[in-house]
Every structure is written in structure tokens, then in C-alpha cells.
């Protein structure tokens, strides 16, 4: 799952200015068809909820970029509206359904914590020492689109989608547990200033994100593994969770990093040939 770097770099303090290359990745909102009414309604609600959550989060952990300090914090701090137990249970279930998808290698591989995109279900470093570079689109003579085009290529097995690029460092998910990913995702200081509406859209409509469910096959025609949750189930879960104010459930042992995000590469590191 890949984020739009323009949005994020623009919103991240201290980040390099967005790339000035012609024609690259206009902001998401300007390229997308009009949002559905459902999305608009949910989004507006969520936006209000999120504003409070974000300010609260920013106050609580100014020096904690990964939000680790939130462990044990009351969930109410993130969900300003009191949910009924049923709503809370529903949101929690939705959260985990969503996270089943978001922690799949198809998503985490391009949200690395070291600037190095990962490949395969084993999440090993991208071959040939490829890294995202400052503008997240690769190096001068090795742009992401040196190989990745706007769609999967059946002949070479190279995956592709519009705007193929790396998520910025502030959106690193690799090594985070579900709760930390969620916190990071909803934190405007890290998510590129996205509103909850934007996040909802990114998660459910963006072509680069949706690529995960049509990941194509590799160079030998073997299909890539999509996220373990069907697309519509995932989308519904995201909507439910955000509509409920994006509450982050209590930690469970099963959510620790490593249980949902592959860590050590099974193959040699990217700097090896």
C-alpha cells in the first residue's frame, strides 16, 4: 500500500519540497472522481472527531514519533465520543479486519522504516539496492518508473499502478504493531496533514492502495498474494472504523510486530546483488 508522496511531503515539516517533475502525481483529491455521498457524510463526521483526536495525540506524545507512548492510554483519548459497548465492539472488529489487510506485505512493503522498499511475501529488501530517495520516487537514473508503470506488466512481472512510489518516512509502518500503525495513520503530523476524510479516501479509493487487491503475478506468472481480507470487506471495515471515530483498541498480544508484519528478510539484503 503506497501513499501519495506529494500530499505527505507537503504536509510534513522539515521534509523536502515536493518534486517539481512535470505531470507527476497531482494531489489525490484533484484526480479522483467525486466522492460518494456516503463517503462525504462519513468523512465529515470523522473529520470533526479526528481533529480532537489529533490535537490530543499531539499533546500527549510530542517527542514520540511512533506513538509508542500510547500503550495503556485510555482509548477515550482517541475517540472523543463515547461509543456504546456494541459500537465499540463493532469498531474494534472493524479495526482488526482493516489491519489484517494493512499489515499484509502488499501494504507494509512500501511503508518501510529504512527508506528501502521491500519485496515478496517475505518482505526482503528491494533488489539492486533500490531505495526511495528524498522525493520517494527513486534516484535520478533509477526512478521507480524506470521499471514500474501505471499497471502490472504481465510479460516482465513488474507490478505497477499510477503514482508508484514509496511512503514517506513519517508513514513508516514496518515494524509497528497495529495500534501504532493506526495512530501514525491518523496523525496529521505524520500522515501528511490528511483529514480523516482524506484517510478514508486513501484507504478505500486510491489506485495505488487498491493495487494490493490486484497485485498481478511475478515474472514467472506466479500470482502475488493479496491482503488476506477481501476488498469490499476491508472497505466496509475502514468505513465503520473511521465513522466510529477511529478508536484504537486495547493492545492484544497477537498484535505485536512480527505477528502481523514480517521482519527479517528471508533473502539477502538489498545491498547484496
Amino acid at each position: 500500500m503506497r501513499a501519495q508522496p506529494q500530499c505527505t511531503t507537503r504536509g510534513s515539516s522539515g521534509a523536502r519540497p515536493p518534486a517539481t517533475r512535470r505531470g507527476q502525481n497531482p494531489p489525490v483529491a484533484s484526480r479522483r472522481p467525486d466522492p460518494t455521498t456516503v463517503r462525504r457524510r462519513v468523512g465529515t463526521t470523522a473529520l470533526l472527531l479526528l481533529a480532537a483526536a489529533a490535537s490530543s495525540a499531539a499533546q500527549e506524545s510530542p517527542a514520540d514519533p511512533h506513538g509508542a507512548g500510547h500503550h495503556g492510554a485510555p482509548e477515550g483519548a482517541e475517540a472523543p465520543r463515547e461509543l456504546t459497548p456494541a459500537e465499540r465492539a463493532e469498531a474494534e472488529a472493524a479495526f482488526h479486519t482493516m489491519m489484517e489487510a494493512l499489515t499484509s506485505p502488499r501494504c507494509v512493503n512500501c511503508h518501510p522504516n529504512d527508506g528501502v522498499p521491500k519485496q515478496t511475501d517475505a518482505a526482503r529488501a528491494h533488489l539492486f539496492g533500490v531505495a526511495g530517495s528524498d522525493d520517494l520516487h527513486g534516484y535520478d537514473a533509477l526512478r521507480c518508473n524506470a521499471c514500474h508503470q501505471a499497471s502490472n506488466d504481465g510479460w516482465s512481472g513488474v507490478p505497477g499502478a499510477p503514482g508508484w512510489s514509496l511512503a514517506p518516512a513519517s508513514m513508516a509502518w514496518e515494524g509497528l504493531d497495529r495500534r501504532a500503525i493506526a495512530r501514525s495513520m491518523m496523525d496529521p503530523a505524520k500522515n501528511g496533514g490528511r483529514s480523516a476524510d482524506d484517510i478514508l479516501h486513501h484507504l478505500t479509493e486510491h489506485e495505488l492502495v487498491l493495487w494490493a487487491w490486484e497485485p498481478g503475478g511475478d515474472g514467472e506468472g506466479r500470482p502475488r498474494t493479496p491482503p488476506p481480507v477481501p476488498l469490499e470487506t476491508y472497505r466496509a471495515a475502514v468505513r465503520t472504523w473511521i465513522a466510529a471515530g477511529a478508536p484504537i483498541p486495547e493492545a492484544r498480544a497477537a498484535d505485536a510486530p512480527g505477528s502481523d508484519a514480517p521482519d527479517s528478510p528471508a533473502e539477502p539484503s538489498g545491498d547484496a546483488p
Binding site: 537514473a141 533509477l142 526512478r143 518508473n145 521499471c147 514500474h148 508503470q149 506488466d153 510479460w155
Partner: peptide, 10 residues
């Protein structure tokens, strides 16, 4: 103007 590997460029 970008280097592109033409075998994966439809």
C-alpha cells in the same frame, strides 16, 4: 528524459 527499462514498459 527518464531512464526506463523498455522490457517492462507496455
Amino acid at each position: 528524459g527518464d531512464a526506463v527499462r523498455s522490457c517492462s514498459f507496455p
